[in-house]
Structure formats: C-alpha cells, structure tokens
C-alpha cells in the first residue's frame, strides 16, 4: 500500500474507517467515540449545507432526515452491530444538536431585527416551525436536565436530535422500550415546566 492510500482523498468515501471506529467505540474505546464525533459532524454539516442550498425557504434543517442520510453515507448498507449503530447515533445526536444550536445562535443574531416577534411558548403546541429562540431555550433546558438526570437527557438527544424511534433508542441505550417511554415522559414534562417557569 502506498503512502497516498492512507490519506482521505477528498473524503468522499470514508465508510471503512467509520465502521472501524464504530466497532472500536462500541467495544468501549473512548477515544474512538471521540474521533467519531468530528466525522459525523462534518458529514452532517455538509448535508445540512447541501440541503439548505436547495431550500430557498429559510432554514429547514430536517434533523431526522439528515442524521439518517449521514448514516447511509458513512456506513452505507453495511451490516454493523447494534452497539456500533448506537454509537453512531450518539455521535450524531450530539453533532446534530451542536449544528442546530450553532445555527440558531447565528440566525438569532442575524434575524433579531424586529421582523419576527418572539413566539409565546404555548404556540409551540401548534406545528409551527421552531424558531431559533425556542431551540436555544430548549437546548438550555436540556443542559439543566442533564445536570439532574443524565439518562433522561441522552434519551432526549437521541429521540429529539437524532430522530430515533422508541425501539432504536432502547437498543442504543440498552434499556427496555418501556423505560424509554417513561424516561421520555419525564424529560418532556421536566423541560416543559422548566421552560414555562423561565418564560414567566
């Protein structure tokens, strides 16, 4: 193998190393998990950017679709173990969260021109788009939740930011589906009342 083979030429097809990293991370190698994040992050940013370019109408990052697309691109259809898959979605959830929040921050800064009124919290119940402000508040409440209950917070990340279903979340955290539902209910109620208290 020549030297040049080891460089990620163009980075177009990095599925090999990713699967290896996933396996390593799944078998408990913390540094592998850490290495995973930037790869997944870059891929998601790339996808998000591509999507936003097609998307004339404001910002509509479709987190779920992006994460799954990133999965397909990085892993392809290769069979990876459940544990590896879970690692991927952990990394993806964190990356997606970072992307959305960075974006919301940036956009919040740019858009604050009086052209958009702050939406009262109740309106979130409509299926209206989440505004950057709402996303930032959500993120802040997630930070708070993480301080008191790490597991509930990671369920929020997986379900909300990586768009995993109950079944996949359960598999990713190696807990039962019932637990996922119960924890999710708690996390949701906790964040909701936290935000309500904040906005009062």
């Amino acid at each position: 193998m020549s030297d040049s083979d080891t460089t990620a030429a163009g980075g177009s097809d990095a599925s090999g190393p990713v699967t290896q990293l996933l396996d390593a991370a799944a078998s408990g190698k913390a540094e592998a998990a850490a290495q995973l994040f930037p790869i997944v992050y870059d891929q998601l940013v790339l996808l998000a950017r591509a999507q936003m370019q097609h998307e004339a109408v404001g910002h509509t990052l479709q987190a779920t679709a992006l994460v799954h697309e990133a999965y397909l691109r990085l892993i392809g259809s290769e069979q990876v173990s459940w544990a590896s898959r879970a690692q991927f979605f952990h990394a993806a959830a964190n990356a997606m969260r970072k992307i959305l929040i960075d974006y919301a921050r940036k956009r919040g800064r740019l858009k604050r021109g009086g052209d958009r009124q702050r939406v009262p919290f109740e309106v979130l119940e409509q299926k209206a788009e989440s505004t950057p402000d709402e996303l930032l508040s959500l993120d802040a409440s997630l930070d708070q939740l993480e301080k008191i209950d790490e597991r509930a917070a990671s369920i929020v990340k997986l379900r909300f930011f990586a768009g995993l279903g109950v079944e996949d979340t359960a598999a990713a955290l190696n807990i039962s589906e019932r637990t996922v539902k119960r924890e999710w209910a708690f996390a949701r109620a906790w964040m909701f009342q936290f935000l309500q208290a904040e906005s009062e």
Binding site: L61, T64, E125, E129, F160
Partner: peptide, 12 residues
C-alpha cells in the same frame, strides 16, 4: 401537548 413531539425541524 405536542411539545418536542417533532424533531427540531420546521417542515417535518
């Protein structure tokens, strides 16, 4: 209600 029932993506 539907709080956080959708991923943080306006159109989904």
């Amino acid at each position: 209600g539907s709080f956080m029932q959708q991923p943080p993506t306006p159109q989904v």
